[in-house]
Amino acid sequence: MSELLGVWLGAFLTLCIFSFLYKDNPFFRFAESLFAGVSLGYYIGIVSTNTLVPNMIRPLTADFSGNAHLLIPLLLGLNLYTRYIPRIAWMARLSLAVYIAYYVGIFMVQKLQGEVVPQVGKTILHPIGGNFTPVDNLIMMVGVLSVLIYFYFSIEHKRAVGVVSRVGIWFLMLGFGAAFGYTVMGRISLLIGRMNYLFIDVVQITSQYL
């Protein structure tokens, strides 16, 4: 029975969202705000279950003295909330500094080692060979270099640089167009999924209970 209730609830909320296609209305706004709340609640569940319990609460409750060092991140985490107490709000900066600094350090290494180096490596192609034809390899090299020159703002985009950066814009437009087409197809497949849900899943599950 809970399945039947659930599927009808899902159908009702889907229709509430789609009602926006007519115009903004209280049903849409209800579903929209419910979605915002449920999403946050969902993250509370995910963070509690996958992060806080296995990494902190379970080790502390199982063997407190052996894992007492975990009180450091616990205190740093709780310290983030001092920002809501005006008199000691500055203390949150300490936790924020630690948190931001670590991820900024990780980010820097990841970006350079995980993105810049491999992407540059893949662009330095032998003209003949690899998975693509020599023309493809040439297009790839010209494309990457011209896009990079377009993003290089330390020199004025005039004469030769201007021409190359114009080619960069064409490549960017082609990339944006392809990405747009790809996104539209993704959204349409989601829409088809919703239609399947409304016209097939709801009907099938309802017929099981009738």
């Binding site: 810049v116 992407q119 297009i139 494309g143 993003f151 490549f171 082609l174 990339g175």
Partner: peptide
């Protein structure tokens, strides 16, 4: 090919900026 070239240029530029 051309889309990958554009995306690669964006990725390299954005990654250098982020670093």
């Amino acid at each position: 090919v051309p889309n990958a070239a554009a995306q690669r240029g964006i990725i390299i530029g954005a990654a250098l900026g982020a670093a």
